[in-house]
């Protein structure tokens, strides 16, 4: 069953700015899905329409089988939404913000207070519970926003760049908490442009470029699709990585004592041969493409299309 289904969704700002251009997207129920794309790809516009905050120019959106455009209140009742900007209730304390959000989701006062306490502890904010949000750092405010989003569980979570401004430990905590929510039955849709973070975490992925969804599917399916065309080559070298193993125009990435690159299968023989001729090369391994390879492949393909 598809939890979120978007069909021909188009949003035009002004006369000719097509932020979303006939988008088709389906997110399966119970997925931890990522909407990946560069800045300005139209990701935020898409989820703001999903939440009923923006009216589409054309197209349909359904949430758990209900038409959101005909019944927009469904989106607010079923979804918890974390906007891109940090939590705005600057004069409230952390506890007040989280508790009031729970109350606005219909939780009675006493239970809302308990839920807020629990959520604050889960995000490691208990020391700041009685502090005003205005006095917190950007990252701490982001955590408050996450606590307010996850308080009073909803069946859908929609989060716009939830790990912005967070340190690595808290980024990990975000994905861990979202995976927990998914395990308890929620469908999670996360907007991000950070491809490294979602590796091994998401169960569904959609790539957005210039207002269109150019690829979607499970990470495995997307890797496999790309794997027919490209492979990930890891060339180990003696000592420090030094120069790239082949002067072939590839975007090689240095790792500790190795170079990693996404290689077109047709050119693999030439590249491997060139690498093997180097004395410093100690091993070559082929792996399936990473999500970064998948993403970069579509970005490059889009670039070629635009040039053509």
């Amino acid at each position: 069953m598809n939890a979120i289904a978007v069909d021909g969704l188009t949003k035009v700002y002004g006369r000719d700015v097509r932020a979303n251009d006939a988008i088709d997207l389906t997110v399966p129920a119970g997925a931890l899905a990522a909407l990946l794309g560069p800045n300005g790809a139209g990701k935020t516009t898409l989820v703001r329409q999903l939440m009923g905050l923006l009216a589409p120019t054309a197209g349909r959106i359904s949430l758990a089988g209900t038409d959101v455009i005909a019944q927009p209140s469904v989106a607010r009742e079923l979804c918890a939404y974390l906007p891109q900007r940090a939590v705005p209730f600057l004069e409230a304390t952390v506890h007040e913000c989280v508790e009031l959000t729970a109350r606005l989701r219909g939780i009675p006062r006493g239970a809302a207070g308990e839920m807020a306490d629990d959520e604050i502890v889960r995000w490691g904010l208990e020391a700041h519970s009685r502090r005003r949000i205005r006095r917190l750092s950007g990252g701490e405010r982001r955590l408050v926003g996450l606590a307010a989003t996850l308080v009073a569980p909803r069946p859908f979570l929609v989060l716009d760049e939830p790990t912005n401004e967070l340190d690595p430990v808290n980024r990990k905590l975000v994905w861990q908490r979202l995976a927990e929510r998914r395990a308890s039955g929620a469908t999670v849709l996360v907007i991000t442009h950070n491809v490294h973070e979602i590796e091994g975490v998401v169960t569904y992925l959609a790539v957005m470029l210039a207002g269109r969804v150019v690829a979607e599917g499970s990470p495995h399916a997307l890797r496999e699709r790309l794997g027919h065309q490209r492979g990930r080559l890891r060339v180990s070298v003696r000592g420090q990585s030094g120069d790239p193993p082949a002067d072939d125009g590839l975007a090689w990435m240095p790792e500790q004592s190795a170079w990693v690159g996404s290689v077109e299968r047709g050119r693999a023989e030439h590249i491997v041969g060139a690498a093997l001729r180097r004395e410093s090369v100690t091993g070559i391994r082929v792996a399936e493409p990473s999500l970064e390879d998948v993403y970069l492949h579509y970005v490059a393909a889009r670039g070629e299309q635009t040039e053509a």
Binding site: A64, E77, L78, F89, E91, A92, E96, L100, R103, L104, R105, G106, I107, A152, P153, R154, P155, G185
Partner: peptide, 29 residues
């Protein structure tokens, strides 16, 4: 979806909760 039963606050509670958020701004306004 049944297990999740979306909850919604009565309008009076909505008003009071938002009023509280507005009251918190007094020191700034």
């Amino acid at each position: 979806m049944d297990a999740w039963r979306a909850t919604k606050a009565p309008v009076r509670d909505q008003y009071l909760a938002i009023l509280k958020l507005e009251l918190l701004k007094v020191r700034r306004t």
